[in-house]
Design a protein around this nucleic acid. Structure first.
Lengths: 201, 201
DNA sequence: CATTTTTGCTAACGAACGTTTGCTTAAATT
DNA sequence: AATTTAAGCAAACGTTCGTTAGCAAAAATG
């Protein structure tokens, strides 16, 4: 058995590429930057990867899967719209904080993909947003959320606010992902619900 | 009198550079891209600019000024925290929609600046966020907003949600900046206030 | 009208880019 | 131990990058 399997090395490269793409952007990161970060020469990377764009694709594709697969079961479940929303926020923040670099790259660097792959990612971004929107829509239709909400607009506001956590979150910071989720939900949900008398002073 | 003054040409370059930096990123846009967009050759730009980074700096610096100078008088005014917040949201969205490209570049491309300029912009970003935070803080201290708000956190959520408008807003779209401001404020403020009985069904 | 200034072109610079090629060393397999 | 396979290096490929230099046309100025 090898101390390091082929896949280990590849995962290291993906991890480092994700970190650098997230910090400096795709075009701001050279193959030699990635190689230097693991003490290799530029050309040596090509024993493990086929192209720079392939690296970006793998990072972005995996992030898309992570987001979608964490939200789908929540939307499909039989819970109330309000509980679905709480769970969706928590799930989104879990992906964002556990795969922080990938989340940043997924949100900001997909434009650098080839047209075909860019379209693929865009479609999955849209699908994810549609799932989230569906939760809000169900809440409105169930009479739990206010009828005058601009659901697509508020959905965007919620998702971009949540995504921004990927930029500033630090695992050693004062707030855990769960605390962030709670603070966000407490604020955001209060703006969605028809008035809850228990909130009165 | 000239049909085109020196400054006109320069402003055209800045406008086009802003559009391309916003669409493709700073590193994803070459000097030749910018030149080609106004039917010039790459080298010809240097009759009007001194460097590519200077272009980025001018765009980002002007955006920083626009944001700060629109928010400062609101924060300094004698209005209630609630009204300050409404005005701040509207002002932010006005800058974001009127100078859409500059706003996107200001938010996403400042990392490409030299360390000195990056620090300058970061300081002004922080100052802007602090002004916004101050409005929320005043609201909490005045007893208008809930005491259990995590003010710095909510401030970030609000600002990033508002900034995202720069990415998707289209002047010919269905929503005017004022309508976006209203929808956002209606939602966000309801989550901040201690319960308002007039909102009950 | 003569002259200075501005504007843009062509061509080129050195540097950095993503990627390929041979060769060498190290590891895994038989 | 012999042999196959993988990993990494050094060097170079052709291209593109930001930028500069020298020259020509055009415009503004006197």
């Amino acid at each position: 058995m090898a101390r390091r399997s082929h896949g280990d090395r590849r995962k290291t490269i993906l991890r480092v590429a994700g970190r650098l793409f997230s910090q400096q952007g795709y075009y701001g990161t050279s193959i030699r930057d990635i190689a230097a970060a693991i003490r290799l020469h530029g050309g040596s990377l090509y024993a493990h990867i086929t192209s720079k764009e392939e690296l970006l694709w793998e990072i972005v594709d995996e992030a898309a899967q992570a987001f979608l697969s964490s939200l789908e079961p929540i939307v499909r479940s039989e819970r109330s719209p309000l509980e679905k929303l709480r769970l969706a926020v928590a799930a989104h923040l879990q992906v964002v904080t556990e795969r922080q670099d990938a989340a940043v790259v997924f949100n900001h660097e997909w434009k650098a993909l080839s047209p075909r792959r860019r379209a693929d990612i865009l479609a999955r971004r849209d699908a994810y947003e549609a799932l989230f929107r569906q939760i809000l829509q169900e809440g409105v239709e169930a009479g739990i959320f206010r009828a005058d909400l601009n659901v697509p607009l508020i959905t965007r506001f919620i998702l971009t606010a949540l995504n921004s956590v990927a930029v500033w979150y630090r695992p050693k910071g004062p707030l855990s992902p769960e605390q962030i989720a709670e603070a966000f939900t407490d604020w955001a949900v209060r703006g969605l619900r028809r008035c809850d008398p228990s909130e009165a002073p």
